[in-house]
Amino acid sequence: MRLTADDKLQIFLGDGSAFFGIAFSLAGIFFAGLILYDYDFSSFPMACLPLTQTTGKVIRTSATTMHVNDSTVTDYTYQYRSNGRAYIAHSFSEVVRLPAGSPVSVQYVPKMPGIACIQGMRNSPTPSWTLLMLPMLLGIGPGIMYLNWRRTRRIVALATNPFITDAICQRLEDLDQKDDDGRKTYRVHYQYIVAGQPYMHELTTTETAEYGVQEPLVAQLDQPQHARLARELPGFIWQRLRRQHRK
């Protein structure tokens, strides 16, 4: 059976996961942007270069809000000296409370004395651990899209080179799990035969099945290990295949 571009798009969008993938991708880009907006990447040299300590003094304090989660941190503006030159920098903390004029211990990079941080604080409003969230935020949406793309390719391959047969229920497993609606889930094992060779197909479902019950199945003729029950296919694909099979 030949499928048009519209047919393939309908398969891709059919189960709704593509929309979830798009939504997660947009949300991931948005939240990743908030993290990157708040993060000060000049702190990287402090993680990989030798540091020197000196003393400094808090000039003023102010409250600032992190865009990523709307939490409030204290922004400490402080002054310190290195090689006779005065520097002004910022450090951030949700825990430490210091009034203006307080002495502080400052760590800085000798080769880049303008990069510094009050000891026990950080020099970015956003904690460094939030950067670990970036792969997850930016990866979930594309991951969902990729899985849906693979599903679409499998269905297109089945519809293009189909072999329709009956699958017989061989075994039913109770997975001792429930879906989001509180229904029990099962794994059903089906056997089907293509060119005299038996194959197995597994389906996780909330519907029970009786041993020996037959259901229509579509296998890929050139790769018969790839198969789906008729009820796993988009309705319009199965209707076309069934009409073609009857002819």
Results as ranks from 00 to 15, higher is better:
1 M>L: 13
3 L>M: 11
7 D>W: 08
10 Q>Y: 05
11 I>R: 06
13 L>D: 03
20 F>P: 03
20 F>L: 12
24 F>M: 09
25 S>L: 14
31 F>A: 06
34 L>K: 06
35 I>H: 05
36 L>Y: 04
37 Y>C: 08
37 Y>I: 05
37 Y>S: 12
39 Y>S: 04
39 Y>Q: 02
40 D>W: 11
44 F>P: 06
45 P>V: 01
45 P>M: 02
46 M>D: 03
48 C>S: 10
49 L>P: 00
53 Q>C: 03
54 T>D: 02
58 V>K: 01
68 V>F: 13
71 S>I: 14
73 V>Y: 01
77 T>R: 12
78 Y>E: 09
85 R>C: 15
87 Y>N: 01
90 H>A: 04
92 F>L: 06
94 E>K: 11
96 V>W: 04
97 R>W: 01
98 L>T: 05
99 P>S: 06
99 P>H: 10
101 G>Q: 11
116 A>F: 02
128 S>A: 08
132 L>A: 15
133 M>P: 06
134 L>R: 02
136 M>D: 14
137 L>M: 09
138 L>H: 08
144 I>Y: 06
144 I>S: 00
145 M>G: 10
147 L>P: 15
148 N>F: 10
152 T>S: 07
155 I>G: 00
156 V>C: 07
156 V>L: 04
160 T>R: 10
161 N>C: 11
163 F>Y: 09
170 Q>G: 00
174 D>A: 07
175 L>A: 10
175 L>W: 14
180 D>W: 13
182 G>F: 08
187 R>K: 08
189 H>Y: 14
192 Y>C: 05
193 I>F: 09
196 G>H: 13
198 P>S: 05
198 P>I: 08
205 T>C: 11
209 A>I: 01
210 E>T: 13
212 G>H: 08
212 G>P: 00
214 Q>Y: 05
216 P>F: 02
217 L>M: 10
217 L>F: 05
219 A>E: 10
220 Q>N: 15
222 D>E: 06
224 P>G: 05
227 A>Q: 02
230 A>W: 01
236 F>G: 10
237 I>L: 09
238 W>D: 12
241 L>Y: 04
242 R>L: 15
245 H>C: 12
246 R>H: 10
